[in-house]
Design a protein around this nucleic acid. Sequence first.
DNA 1: GCCACACAAGAGACCGGTCTCTCTCTCGCA
DNA 2: TGCGAGAGAGAGACCGGTCTCTTGTGTGGC
Lengths: 365, 365
Amino acid sequence: MDRPAAQVPPTIAEVARAAGVAKATAGRVLGGYGSPSPELQARVRAAAEALGYRPNMLARSMSTGVTKTIGVVVADISNPFFAGLVRGIADAGRAAGYDTVLVNTDERVDRERAAVEVLVGKQVDGLIIASAAGAPAPAPHLRAAISRGTPVVGVDRDLPDLDADVFVIDNREITRHAVDHLIDAGHRRIAYAWGPPHPGQVRSREELLGAAGADLSTGAARLRGYVDALDAAGIDLDPRLVTTGVETVEGTEEALRVMLGSARPPSAVFATETDALLGALRALQAAGLRCPEDVSLVGFDDSPWTAVVEPPITVVQQPVQQLGEAAARRLIQRIDGFDAAAERTVLSARLVSRSSVRGPRTQPA
Amino acid sequence: MDRPAAQVPPTIAEVARAAGVAKATAGRVLGGYGSPSPELQARVRAAAEALGYRPNMLARSMSTGVTKTIGVVVADISNPFFAGLVRGIADAGRAAGYDTVLVNTDERVDRERAAVEVLVGKQVDGLIIASAAGAPAPAPHLRAAISRGTPVVGVDRDLPDLDADVFVIDNREITRHAVDHLIDAGHRRIAYAWGPPHPGQVRSREELLGAAGADLSTGAARLRGYVDALDAAGIDLDPRLVTTGVETVEGTEEALRVMLGSARPPSAVFATETDALLGALRALQAAGLRCPEDVSLVGFDDSPWTAVVEPPITVVQQPVQQLGEAAARRLIQRIDGFDAAAERTVLSARLVSRSSVRGPRTQPA
DNA sequence: GCCACACAAGAGACCGGTCTCTCTCTCGCA
DNA sequence: TGCGAGAGAGAGACCGGTCTCTTGTGTGGC
């Protein structure tokens, strides 16, 4: 025999037999419940050791109804934002003895639904989800999970019409603040990279806000913050300065290159995602423009590299890991039976001012 | 009652009773095994639908011995390298119907051991691990997992003395190639950022190679590649150009700043990690040096930003996601009973040449 | 010195599926 | 018409733990 046959792991019953006690007694010793006598404890322990006994958590979960596992559903773990989020969740979970099952959905609602069903089927004790199902979709799969007794906590995205805790960033406020920062520097034509996923060009303010949907998704909230800032400053919203329907680095680059080459180009760019910022940077390079001399730049998500590039980039920094930790802690409270009304918790992002913002080259009229 | 009490989900027995059939029959219909008659199928299906039946995967796993879950153990999911790796694993896993349980170890062997035990206890069908337990530690926890019948596949790091498949990058060769690239450009004093974790200054070549350990960890392999290149070019290894004992952005920055300010500073830096590259960039900024005019730079791990910074940085690009996919596919083969001798598969990284390398400012003597 | 009570240990049900074994019914063929 | 094969349905064991219920033992109080 080439590879030694896997010996079947011993069960509690076998340990009990080896120790000469009843299965129940061995269970009490090995499971740490009840009150077995010190003498039998020693005997059972010795037998377990000798046989190399390891508890089967599946069987334990089967009878206790607890898996010590939480399900995490995000769009894409290779996105640094979600990676940080999951790290926070995993850390807070582990501190309380929970493991983490991870599923990627790529923002597809069908895969999200499938993921939730699988996880609930696997009897996770709770679910943390950055749901792709926006305001129109009422997320019936999540409702089903909750009604079956699996607590659900939303993170980064709101969970419309659902009786669930939610932890989000103050996207609208921080975006308004960031755009204010550009306006204060004198900019009036500010491009917005990664607008709503609407296909094709949007013509009017109404159409734009309509395409963004309700105020619940992060994207819509950020766009509203942008509009808030413009409105407060009395700047007309120019829909042509908002990219629509692009959600890749390349798409953003292309869209911004067109904008920057137009008759009335933007003097600043606000990028709502790391990839949008990357696209903006590439568009500037391709157009032979320099930051901040020619175009000012503000990004979202504080990746370490934004601080070391030339120039260091002013960004909105989200408390990603804390967001994950807070969500996980609350979920665990719920699992433990905490029974208060669901809450919406807003964590504050902050604007980290660096050197990518300066006044526009030609003062606006 | 404020929040509706979670109704206990129906079991197969209840569905069977509602449909007026035996539990076994309902099981056959709902579990998709055996051959129930079309008529009873319809009846059971209707009853299941009416009651909102969802199978309990835990119970199924309990009796089949299969959980359709793979455990993944990495150092830190918020590190883009591991995030990409996990994404690859999750994708290949999902394609075969497997979910992914993720554990972070922060490179700590004690946490790695605990993680493996928990995962095996939870009866994962297989394990993929980027093990922190280097050559000296014989990884008894992994041996235990294998002997219990849980297949283990190593990824990114070798698994010394273990009968397990392993998927790694050709670290030594690609590092030699990258350093050759710097040497070809005329550099002879090449700093190496993120050398062995040895505390304190290393004095000699022997001490350095000894500190790096056997040729099995990625770090040791990269260091050897560096030495290979130097040797082939007849350049004396200067241990002072190799950072030791630092594994943070700040630590690297500090160490390199000292080097760059020394009497015989390096004219180029080879950074073996994303964070090492970040540290190098910061050190250059702090020292008021420019890349590539003053110092050339080659990094590891192709993060998108390396292409858009000024100057675009020459980096070693690892096929991260493919690595994860390959490991997961092989693991699943093993789970399915594939029984050939364990293999060590080496995927090739490649050097992406950009603009951060140029000849040294003063030609070496 | 006797009774009651506390507590440890054993026996076995239970969690919710799967799966084997047995029984019955039907159909085909002689 | 009778018999055998085969298929479909039911009963119940089983996976490996937990936990309740019962039994038995020892101890303390009066």
